[in-house]
Amino acid sequence: MTANPEPVIFGEVLFDCFEERSVLGGAPFNVAWNLKGLGRDPLFMGAVGDDALGARVQQALSAWGMRPEGLQLDPHHPTGQVQVTLSGGEPQYEILADQAYDHVEVAGALDALPDHGILYHGSLALREASARHGLERLRDHMDARVFMDVNLRAPWWKREEVHDLMAHATWVKLNQDELSALAPEPAADPEVQARLTLACFDLEAMIVTRASQGAMVLTREGAVHAMNAPAVAGLKDTVGAGDAFSAVTLLGLLEGWPWEVILHRAAEFAARVCTLHGATTEDPGFYASAHDAWNSARPSPQPLSPGGRGAR
Rank of each mutant, 00 (worst) to 15 (best):
G49Q: 04
R56I: 00
A47T: 06
D50A: 15
G70Q: 11
D98A: 15
R67T: 12
A32C: 02
A63C: 09
P75T: 10
A55M: 10
R56H: 08
L38T: 00
T85E: 11
E94S: 11
G25A: 04
Q72W: 09
G54W: 07
Q92P: 02
V84S: 05
L35R: 05
S22R: 13
M66A: 10
V104F: 08
V84A: 10
M45S: 02
A100W: 06
L71H: 03
R56N: 05
G46W: 00
L24E: 07
H76T: 11
L24H: 07
V82H: 04
L53D: 14
D74I: 00
S62C: 13
W64M: 15
Q81E: 14
V106R: 08
L96E: 13
A97F: 04
D51W: 03
A27Q: 05
M45Y: 01
R67N: 14
A107V: 10
A32D: 04
A27V: 11
D50E: 15
L71D: 04
G25S: 08
D74S: 05
V31I: 10
L96W: 11
P78I: 03
W33S: 01
A100P: 02
G54P: 07
L73S: 10
D74G: 03
N34F: 00
Q81N: 06
D41N: 15
